[in-house]
Design a protein around this nucleic acid. Sequence first.
DNA 1: CGAGTAACGGACCAATTCGGTCCGATTTGG
DNA 2: CCAAATCGGACCGAATTGGTCCGTTACTCG
Lengths: 160, 160
Amino acid sequence: MLKVNRKSEYALMTVQHLARLPAGTVLAAQQLAEELGVPEDLLAKVLQGLKRAEVLQASKGAGGGYRLVRTLAELRFIDVIGPFEDHMAMVSCCETPARAAGSAMCERAESCGVRQPISALNQLLHSQMAQLTMDQFLKGGGGAGLRSAAELAAEASLVG
Amino acid sequence: MLKVNRKSEYALMTVQHLARLPAGTVLAAQQLAEELGVPEDLLAKVLQGLKRAEVLQASKGAGGGYRLVRTLAELRFIDVIGPFEDHMAMVSCCETPARAAGSAMCERAESCGVRQPISALNQLLHSQMAQLTMDQFLKGGGGAGLRSAAELAAEASLVG
DNA sequence: CGAGTAACGGACCAATTCGGTCCGATTTGG
DNA sequence: CCAAATCGGACCGAATTGGTCCGTTACTCG
């Protein structure tokens, strides 16, 4: 658990990199890949994902590329890594009803007893990453972000 | 991210199951597997892991089996799932120096810039699971556990 | 208008991880 | 001694992951 995949890593690097440049700067995938030192084809996929998530804006054709659409303060950590993390469910049998079809395991769902606790814990961790803004994350690395954990305590009471 | 693997799931189920029985009850792997409805051979590995982590105590021979060594209040969430989650590092290049040997990626470690924030965030999430006791987790599912998130805020300031 | 540039997206591949099984060795109690 | 139980390594198939390749589409600039 707790491991982000490579794509998310590249996504974070991309956002940070673009944020350091003057606002509105447009960079092509190729150039971005070069500057970050990551495989170009893979980064291309990441950029497409970030565009679909409305984190980046893309412009095709000559002179085109990607630019940030929001400021770091308006971007949440989860917005950036979310598109590349499929299973935030923490436990296989609590995923979407659609996917749960294949799991024979859910037959003992009622007796299992850890499903509900896990799901609750998951919601909490999830909400923490949903509250963490990218600028909090980048400077302080969450230390700053979760220094506001007192607020979370308040919200936790309505989750639990 | 945020997904525990099957072994951890079985570990949580095991601890919960044993905790419901009279304290000190000894159950064999076979019987435990039957009652939980999970594959026996795999559960055996989980039980061995939990024993190594000193969560369970094992006794061999006829009439043997496993029993809890600590109460739910003394058991932390991370004690139970820890033995089965190898990569809590959140990002591949910040793992133990030993494993980092193979990664060419770490050559850009200094310029990367997201390593440090990720590692800090990781420490925070990790510490939350280290504070969450198993009884908090089981009733309330972390809602109760993280209602003490205010305390975490205090601790966060020395982490960040 | 047309050539070049860059995003788009699907197919594919190798390597790793994961869930699970099998089997033999060892210890222990009756 | 025998049966019950833990122990632990080897192994396997399937799923996931990190990464590549290539063709298509859309746009811009000369």
